[in-house]
């Protein structure tokens, strides 16, 4: 065994070197991807009730693909993400539903956030973050891309970008 010491040292070194160059060591893969999205229905935040009704969520059947965005008013990346999502929704609202889920937040703070960024895509309120856990979220913001057949196609951790959004759009509308 000792004779092969260079091999052991190189194996250990290789393992660590690989570990060091991983772009995001903390990122945890989602087990939901490729499986049906869990259904839920939650109270809609006040500004959207008129248009979307008292409750909204992921039902058994979907009218169009859903971009499920989990956010909170206290999260900093959500602030740069909000205008991006808004403009995306303005352009593509006939093709996809951008659905915000406000988690672990206070309702007043969430409403202030919505007013500040003038968000028109609907958001539901989930004080405890229960739906986040149902989807297996690891923090905010996080976005789940759900096809019209209610299958989770992708999960995006952290802030979205325009190019990423376009990529996901092509995934739901090939």
């Amino acid at each position: 065994m000792l004779r092969f010491w260079p091999i052991w040292v190189l194996l250990l070194g290789g393992l660590f070197l690989w570990g060091l160059q991983r772009p995001s060591p903390e990122a945890l893969g989602s087990v939901r991807v490729g499986k049906p999205a869990p259904t839920f229905s939650l109270p809609v935040l006040a500004p959207y009730r008129e248009r979307f009704g008292p409750e909204l969520g992921v039902g058994e059947t979907l009218e169009k693909p859903v971009f499920l965005n989990i956010w909170a008013s206290w999260c900093i990346p959500c602030r740069t993400e909000a205008p991006l999502l808004e403009s995306f929704y303005q352009r593509y609202q006939d093709r996809v539903l951008v659905l915000g889920v406000n988690v672990q937040d206070q309702e007043e703070a969430a409403l202030r956030f919505i007013a500040q960024y003038g968000l028109t895509f609907p958001s539901v309120y989930d004080a405890r973050g229960r739906i986040g856990i149902e989807y297996g979220y690891t923090g905010v913001p996080e976005t789940f891309i759900i096809s019209k057949e209610r299958k989770v196609l992708a999960r995006h951790i952290g802030e979205l970008s325009e190019s990423k959004l376009q990529e996901y759009l092509r995934q739901v509308w090939p």
Binding site: L28, V103, R128, G129, R130, G132, I133, T138, G139
Partner: peptide, 23 residues
């Protein structure tokens, strides 16, 4: 706990951990 650096859901005070304890 999914958001913590290696802490368990019993120790962490993060929101997700609290919700896990509730569940």
């Amino acid at each position: 706990c999914p958001v913590c650096q290696g802490e368990s859901a019993a120790e962490s005070n993060a929101g997700i951990a609290l919700e896990m304890r509730r569940i």
